[in-house]
């Protein structure tokens, strides 16, 4: 089965406007501006510490921004504009907004005491109030899509890393999110397990869900991305199509980063 059966294929436009974010005195995001169109697959690359994870986390309101705004389909994340002021949303509203944004973590973060199926149905039932029978049916469908129909009752520790990440992807999809954020989904995996996870994401990319993917898999980025942005020091340094950014980078920092990532053998 393909993931293309997800309904409402055009939704999930993300707009990031002049976002600043600091931890203490260290500014992690500088004036970040970014528009992700409905159904676009955006890949974020950049050296360690450049603020890629932080950017993703602000989109899910796991981190508050210091300045600037982030919106999803025109609705501000975490705030409401009223009388020229930004009012913080109530917890329930923030939770509802989060269900629109799926997130897949580097370390999977599956709930260790719950089976694969229980992991997937938890949020639909308790964050979306979907009836249990319906949530279970949907979860089984998703497990089949990621090729794990027979692992519904397995606990995360009984699964390989690649299988765990595929369950985590199914869990994120169970809420029918408008946008799915991937934070280095394959960096904790052994090389031979990377492919199976990338296949699932590739399939998802064809379905028309907006995806924002942080990855170091440059080959995969070239394949799957509609657009690539390169971040360094908390700024978006360069962006464009994969051919532009990977094939003909304009900035020195992009060039040096790519030379390290693509052909590490040449940089001893």
């Amino acid at each position: 089965m393909s993931l293309a059966t997800i309904e409402k294929t055009t939704r999930g436009a993300v707009a990031v406007r002049s976002v600043d974010k600091s931890y203490g005195t260290q500014q992690v995001l500088h004036e970040v501006n970014l528009d992700v169109a409905e159904g676009e697959v955006l890949v974020v690359i950049g050296p360690s510490g450049s603020g890629k994870s932080t950017l993703l986390r602000t989109i899910n309101h796991l981190e508050k921004v210091d300045r600037g705004t982030i919106s999803l389909d025109g609705e501000l994340i975490g705030y409401k504009a009223r009388n020229g002021k930004l009012h913080e949303r109530r917890e329930a509203e923030i939770l509802a907004q989060r269900t629109e944004v799926g997130m897949v973590f580097q370390n999977f973060n599956l709930f260790g005491h719950l089976t694969a199926l229980q992991n997937i149905i938890e949020a639909p039932i308790h964050a979306r109030k979907i009836p249990k029978a319906k949530a279970v049916a949907r979860a089984k469908e998703l497990l089949a899509r990621v090729g794990l129909a027979d692992k519904a009752d397995a606990y995360p520790r009984q699964l390989s890393g690649g299988q765990q990440q595929r369950v985590a992807i199914a869990r994120a999809l169970a809420l029918d999110p408008k946008v799915v954020l991937f934070d280095e989904p394959t960096s904790a995996l052994d090389p031979e397990l990377v492919t199976e996870v990338l296949e699932v994401i590739r399939d998802l990319a064809k379905s028309g869900t907006t995806l924002i993917i942080v990855t170091h898999e440059i080959g995969f980025a070239r394949d799957v991305a509609d657009r690539i942005i390169f971040m360094d020091g908390g700024r978006v340094v360069e962006q464009g199509t994969p051919t532009q950014v990977l094939g003909n980078p304009q900035h020195e920092r992009t060039k040096s980063f790519l030379s390290k990532v693509i052909e590490p053998a040449f940089n001893i």
């Binding site: 907004q97 599956l110 964050a127």
Partner: peptide, 19 residues
């Protein structure tokens, strides 16, 4: 990471703590 994942899924606070 468990709490973070539950938060990102929009699971309410009390449920996050108890479940």
């Amino acid at each position: 990471g468990q709490i973070e994942a539950a938060t990102a899924l929009g699971i309410p606070r009390w449920r996050r703590s108890t479940r």
